[in-house]
Design a protein around this nucleic acid. Sequence first.
DNA 1: TAATTTTTAGAACAAATGTACTAAAATTTA
DNA 2: TAAATTTTAGTACATTTGTTCTAAAAATTA
Lengths: 213, 213
Amino acid sequence: MDTKEKILEVALRQFNELGTDAVTVRSIAQEVGISHGNLCYHFANTDAIILALYQKIVGEMDEQTSIALAPSSELELLLRIGERGFRILYRYKFLMLDFVRIMRRIPQIQTAYRELMKFRQQQFLQLFQNMVAKGWFIPDPVPHHYENLAERMLVNSDSWIPHAEIHFEGTPEEAIRHYYRIYISELLPLLTEKGQKLYEELFSQALHSEKEG
Amino acid sequence: MDTKEKILEVALRQFNELGTDAVTVRSIAQEVGISHGNLCYHFANTDAIILALYQKIVGEMDEQTSIALAPSSELELLLRIGERGFRILYRYKFLMLDFVRIMRRIPQIQTAYRELMKFRQQQFLQLFQNMVAKGWFIPDPVPHHYENLAERMLVNSDSWIPHAEIHFEGTPEEAIRHYYRIYISELLPLLTEKGQKLYEELFSQALHSEKEG
DNA sequence: TAATTTTTAGAACAAATGTACTAAAATTTA
DNA sequence: TAAATTTTAGTACATTTGTTCTAAAAATTA
């Protein structure tokens, strides 16, 4: 395996386990089994490693999204993006655990992330509007409800990992399922009868395929 | 003013502005105008300062809650706790901005915080149940909806500040209002007609009194 | 094979930081 | 006022960490 990839792999594990504070070029180098001088040859410092990991997660997310675009149903899309997305996020959880500090330190990430979020918020809103149009969601119960919902879900998708880290007792898999359920359950009261049937069908299916895959 | 309080005041400002990374016993001491040796006489290290600040915010929150307990209406209670609570949180925003790292570093805070959250979750649930009983909220639209809601709102109240720090452009006051609106708007579809009238009344009143106070 | 490039190890350096210590100054108490 | 206590300043030290540099080793290319 490539040294560079080995470094990223070890760094990711250390970041997730110990936090960005405790991880140094030396600690990574030691576990990889190379000198820290050598590590700095590949990545100038830990910030460069974090940046590389950020680019990796964005890549995985994009790939995931394009796969999820295949199904015809918007409801299924929402479910699958969420489901897989939560899993990907968890694999890079250190990014979520102190993302404010990381973005303060690495402006490139902050810029990229802000644009990404604006895009995703639009995507959410579009999705909800489609669902309403198709008769799966009820129309705005109060003015701007779906706008608020989109932003709230965006906040939630960023913050369940820090919350879980402090408050949740259980395996990572349990945490993912738990918080995904909490996350998605906000949509249930918005479903029409027609939408509710479709949802239950798809959701039990999704859970099932997760257990198998 | 007491030296100890001066230290806490300066430390809070530096933590909020620069993040817990950039703040050292020396930087605080310099701004207070004392030697860092002296500062370490009062607080052994930055962790001790953070702990003291945590205890202060808990105190302020408790005080706020007991004041808010005065009004007879549960709906008003929910509003006032949220409204003032958001403001208090923002004044100690560094705690929210990297609370995972802080809790990893200072186990006392983690323990206290976990208990606090369990208590607050119960409080939320109780509140919702009362609202349903009084005919302001509709009964569970889906099973366990209010349980999920309570947990989700707990997550939200912890995470809007980090989100704002990265994504929101505007004054702190605008941020507080914006995210509080997003936060509370999840409840709107759950209001009965009776509840909705009461809400609109109270909410416009609350906003008004904020502008004056 | 010979030259060139890439990769690696390890030493060395500078800056920052928490911590401990000493003695002086200020304040409080008896 | 005198003694005791609290508070303060300043120094010194050990540790950590990023960063740079040199030269050797390995791999690649001509």
